Simulated scan of single mutants.
Amino acid sequence: MSQPLVDVRDLSVHFPVGRTMFNQGVTVRAVDGVSLSIGKGEVLGLVGESGSGKTTLGRSLLRLVEPTGGSVRLNGEEVTTMSPARLRRARSEMQIIFQDPFASLNPRMSVGEILSEALHLHRIGTRADRRDRVATLLEKVGLPASAAQRHPHEFSGGQRQRIGIARALSVNPAFIVADEPVSALDVSIQAQIVNLLHDLREALDLSILFIGHDLSVIEYLCDRVMVMYMGRVMETGTVADIYQRPRHPYTRALLDAAPQVTTRRRTDRIMLTGDLPSPVNPPSGCIFRTRCPFATEACAQAIPPLLARAPGHEVACIRAEEIDLAPA
C-alpha cells in the first residue's frame, strides 16, 4: 500500500470504572494499542465477538469517542488533535453508517430534511442544489425521489438503512465506518444492502471500515480482515490469509463457529468455551489464553506482539509457527 487514506497507530480508548473520591477504581482498555491502515477504495473488515472493542474502535477513528492515546491520520492529517472547528469541517470527509437505522434517523424530520441537513451544516450548494442532491442520493440507494417527502417510520428496516447510507454519502466522504449495518435486518434484506454497499464502493471509490459478525458478508465485501479480541488485534491479513490460512486460534474458532451448509461432519473444529473474561480483570499475557486450547504456561508471561508471519499477514500468538490451523 503506497499512501493509506486512513493510518492508525497505537490507538487506545480507556474507560475508568468504579472511580469515586475515595477510590481510583480500575480502567477498562476497550481499545488497547491498535494499529491499522486503509487504502483509497479499500474495504477492511473488522470482526470479533461482542465486547471485543470493534464499535469503540470505529467510533474513535471519527472522534465520536475520544481516544485516550495514539494517532489517527486521515489523508495525512492528524485527527486526534484537530480543533473543534477543523473537526467539524473534517466530518464531510468521514462518515458513519449505524447498526440501527431507525434509532439513527430523526423521526420528526422528513427524509429530504435528513439528507440535506449535513449539506446545510457544511454550506454546500443552494437550496435548489440540495434538493437535486437529495433526489440523486435516493436514486443511488435504490429509493424513489418521492421518498424525500416521507418520514422514517413509513419505511421498512431495509429502506431505512438505505436512507442511512444515503445520509452518510450526502457530503461525498472519502472514508466511511459501517458499524454492523446489516445485523438488524432480515437475511434476504441483508444481501440487498451488502450488494448496495459493494456497488457504491466500486462506483465511488470509497474506503470503508466494515464492522460485522457475519463472516460470509466479510468475505464477500472486504479486501482485508482484522480480528479483535478484548481490545487487541489477534490477526490481520487478506481475505485469503484469514479464511484459508488462519494462524491464530481465535481466528480459526470464529471460522469454525460460522454456519456452513455441508453434510460432512467436521472433527477438527476449535470450539470456544466460556464467556469473555471480565474487562475489569483481564488475563495476564495473551488475553485469549483462558479460552485457547493451545495455551501453555508461557502464554501467561507476556503480551504477544503482532508480528508478520507472511507479507501482509500479522499474528499475535507465540505459538503461531508451531500449530497448524489451516482448515481441513
Rank of each mutant, 00 (worst) to 15 (best):
R252K: 12
F15Y: 15
R224K: 14
P279Q: 09
G45V: 03
A302I: 08
V43L: 05
A128H: 13
A178T: 01
K40T: 15
Y229L: 09
Q301P: 02
E322G: 07
Y220G: 06
G45S: 03
E139K: 12
Y243Q: 07
R252C: 07
P246L: 02
D10M: 09
T126P: 10
H14Y: 15
P282C: 08
P101L: 07
G285Q: 10
D10K: 13
A300F: 02
E297Q: 15
L105S: 07
M234D: 01
T267S: 15
E117A: 13
V6I: 15
I318P: 03
R29K: 15
V280C: 11
L44C: 09
E78R: 13
L254G: 11
S2L: 10
N75F: 07
H213E: 09
L206F: 00
Y250A: 07
S183C: 06
R108N: 04
I270R: 11
R319V: 02
T68M: 10
N195G: 10
V43P: 00
E93R: 15
L196Q: 03
N75G: 15
A310N: 04
E154M: 12
I97R: 06
V227D: 08
P246F: 05
R63I: 00
R167Y: 06
F22D: 13
L272E: 09
V227K: 04
H213M: 09
E66I: 06
R289T: 00
H313A: 03
V43Y: 02
K40Y: 11
S284Q: 12
I218M: 04
V65G: 09
V233G: 07
N75I: 00
P16K: 10
R86M: 13
R150D: 02
P311N: 08
S110L: 08
G70A: 03
V187K: 11
A85S: 14
L276V: 08
T263N: 14
V31M: 01
S37W: 02
A310D: 13
L185Q: 03
G158T: 01
S60R: 08
Q95P: 03
H213Q: 15
V28A: 14
P67Q: 09
L206Y: 04
K140N: 05
R133G: 01
L169C: 05
T80M: 11
A90P: 04
E235V: 03
S183L: 00
R133P: 02
L221W: 05
G112D: 01
Q161F: 00
S156A: 07
G157T: 08
Q244P: 03
P246Y: 05
L272H: 12
V141K: 05
H122M: 07
E180G: 04
R88G: 10
D129N: 14
I242A: 08
A85M: 11
R160P: 00
K40D: 12
S156D: 06
A145I: 05
L115N: 07
G285V: 08
A326E: 14
G51E: 05
E322Y: 08
D186R: 11
A178N: 06
V171W: 05
I124H: 07
R63K: 14
T296H: 01
M94G: 04
H248K: 10
P181R: 00
A178S: 12
R266N: 14
L306E: 12
I124E: 13
F288A: 11
L307T: 14
A326T: 15
L115H: 01
A308I: 02
L105W: 03
R232H: 01
M82F: 13
R29H: 13
M94P: 01
